[in-house]
Write a protein that binds this DNA or RNA. Structure first.
Lengths: 207, 207
DNA sequence: CGCGGTTCTGAACATGGGTTCCAGAAAGTT
DNA sequence: AACTTTCTGGAACCCATGTTCAGAACCGCG
């Protein structure tokens, strides 16, 4: 009856680790999508009963948002890598976002991209938050593109933000390819080519 | 009982045009997604009662597949544009796929991209078919990339198919940007930049 | 006009899945 | 050990939505 009671008796403490549960939940959502996972599935994945899930996190929607939000924040932070020089930093950020260890299905940014693709239909808030999380990345792109323009590698009349958007767009699409069965190695190769083509090495002269 | 009867009595004729209905259905799916549209919605959108829809097209899934398949075939055909020269042709195809008239929400390939994004989770067949429909486009990309490699604009060790995939990926991502509120004009500018960057004008020397 | 045949329609049905609820177990505190 | 509080699990509830069905409407023909 008292949510934060401080009376004499303390009551039973939690048996599960909240963080572990959230990880399991994210993994499940990541695997089968929002609509594709029932609360039953989540119960199985976490080892908690439905009742416990509801008691601890509220309904399915709230649970998803919790996981989603946490993931976004995580992404925001992981995007803030320290390397010397703004360009190097930006490039590094880009790589960190786009590439993934071979065979690893939980590539960075994946959950974000996938859920956004699925839920942008019905939930503008999620779409917006997801995009916001990409903003750091976008900013990196802008920086790189500007630099490339100064160096003369890209048409100077092009809009840096727009080109940054292209990279973002590419990332979204990469997930689709992954889903379609393209292996991680190939994906990374594509990614590298993309980074190269936008960001800026002078093209080789010939074969 | 007899689907194609040729007996004396002809029975009550259809009151609707099948094609018009399918267009309305596609529009609705395109607007609110598969999960986001109820059969009730479809009924409202088409002006037909639920029963009629079921009688004419089968269940919701079948109806979607019908629309989807038709759209894919349409896309396959529209990808076969005639221009002189294979490179010109490929480039034209690419533009036809990626760009859209300003402010037009029903841009080419849109329905395909969106539904794939939503349903690839749960239906591999749809994901595969969608990708197959993109194949002509992919082939065009491959062609362009090979040409670019011969001309020395792209690293010759890169895999042309992979780079083609990049363009496909980009297209998928563009839809996301559109959804996120980026206006069509900007999108087209991004697209042009993408086409330019892959396809191959030698970069300008400086500003 | 009646009759076979087909289509149209809205109400009724079925079901999957999110949510609630309660009885009992478990863990602190005194 | 008793008491208090919280956790737990699963049965029960509720509702949205896909699907079916019985009857009305409509057509051409004899």
């Amino acid at each position: 009856m008292f949510r934060t009671a401080y009376r004499g008796a303390m009551g039973r403490p939690r048996k599960f680790d909240e963080h572990d549960v959230l990880v399991a939940v994210r993994r499940q959502f990541n695997e089968t999508g929002y609509h594709g996972t029932s609360v039953e599935d989540l119960s199985r994945a976490t080892g908690l009963s439905k009742g416990s899930l509801y008691g601890a996190f509220g309904d399915k929607d709230a649970l998803f948002r919790r996981v989603f939000e946490e993931y976004c924040e995580n992404s925001d932070q992981s995007a803030a890598v320290r390397v010397e020089g703004p360009e190097e930093q930006a490039l590094d950020r880009l790589r960190a976002w786009l590439t993934a260890p071979e065979g690893c299905p939980d590539r960075r940014g994946c959950f974000l991209a996938k859920t956004t693709a699925e839920l942008a239909w019905e939930d503008d808030a999620i779409a917006a938050r997801s995009l916001a999380a990409y903003e750091t990345l976008l900013e990196s792109c802008r920086l790189l593109v500007e630099q490339a323009q100064r160096a003369g590698h890209i048409d100077p009349t092009a809009d840096p933000t727009a080109l940054g958007g292209l990279v973002l767009a590419t990332h979204r699409g990469l997930e689709a390819l992954l889903k379609a069965g393209v292996d991680t190695k190939t994906l990374n190769r594509i990614t590298d080519a993309a980074i190269d083509s936008i960001a800026l090495q002078p093209k080789r002269a010939s074969a």
